[in-house]
C-alpha cells in the first residue's frame, strides 16, 4: 500500500529535492525500509544500522508520534500521511 511520506528539509536533497514522496509498506518499519531502498542517501539518517529509529528523528502517522504507538510496528493504511521530523527543543 503506498503512503505519502513528508520529508524534513534536511532529507530532501537525498530525494532529489522533493518535500513529499510515496513509499510502500503495511507498517512504519516497512515504509521506512522501502524509503531508504528508494533513496539510499537516507541510510543512517532515519534508521540506525541495527534497524531502530534514529534518536533525533520523530516519525508521525498522521498526527501521532509512532514512539507512543507501536513504534516501527505501527500500522499504516492507504491514505495515511507519514511525517518525518527532526527533534527540536522549545523553551
Amino acid at each position: 500500500m503506498p503512503v505519502e511520506v513528508r520529508l524534513p528539509t534536511v532529507l530532501r536533497s537525498a530525494a532529489g529535492g522533493s518535500s513529499s514522496v510515496t513509499a510502500e509498506g503495511a507498517t512504519i518499519g516497512e515504509v521506512l525500509q522501502n524509503l531508504i531502498a528508494a533513496f539510499p542517501a537516507m541510510a543512517g539518517q532515519v534508521l540506525t544500522e541495527d534497524g531502530t529509529l534514529h534518536r533525533f528523528v520523530n516519525v508521525y502517522v498522521n498526527d501521532d508520534d509512532v514512539r507512543y504507538l507501536e513504534q516501527l510496528d505501527t500500522k499504516v493504511a492507504e491514505g495515511d500521511t507519514v511525517s518525518i521530523l527532526p527533534a527540536v527543543a522549545g523553551g
Binding site: 539518517q45 533525533f56 527533534a87
Partner: peptide, 12 residues
C-alpha cells in the same frame, strides 16, 4: 527550522 544541516543537529 530549515537551518539544520543534518538530523544529528537534532536535540532532545
Amino acid at each position: 527550522v530549515d537551518g539544520l544541516r543534518n538530523l544529528d543537529d537534532g536535540y532532545i
